[in-house]
């Protein structure tokens, strides 16, 4: 990253959405409890490659990386995750409705 040519524009600030704060909290709590290290998180983000940097937001990359590390730590299985995500989608079309269950 350091020294590479990129576009010059610096982005504006934005307030963090609730789901982003929750991702941040999951990262802090799960790493504090020893499920992974900050290096494990960074490694998972790097392994997503350049394309992820272009197509995913900051906390989208983070939630993917926290999940990758929790799968590797055997906290839950991919099948459990996938089935739960299907149930959540069925609850409603917005984040608020899907969260409220």
């Amino acid at each position: 990253m350091g020294g590479q040519q990129t576009d010059a524009e610096l982005p504006e600030d934005h307030d963090f959405a609730l789901w982003e704060k929750r991702v941040d909290a999951l990262m802090v709590l799960c790493s504090t409890k020893g499920y992974f290290t900050v290096d494990g998180l960074r490694r998972a983000i790097e392994d997503m490659g350049e394309e992820a940097f272009e197509t995913m937001s900051y906390y989208e990359r983070w939630v993917a990386a926290v999940n990758q590390n929790m799968i590797e730590a055997d906290a839950y299985t991919l099948a459990e995750l996938g089935e739960r995500m299907e149930q959540i989608k069925a609850r409603g079309p917005t984040y608020g409705e899907a969260t409220d269950g």
Binding site: M1, G2, G3, T37, D39, G40, R42, R43, E72, A73
Partner: peptide
Amino acid sequence: PAYLRGKCGVIERNLGEFANPERAAYG
């Protein structure tokens, strides 16, 4: 960082012992 590889500098301070990230990253 890749941009520092092969470059020369001076040691500003010693920070102590920390876990090698090249192993910590893989658990």
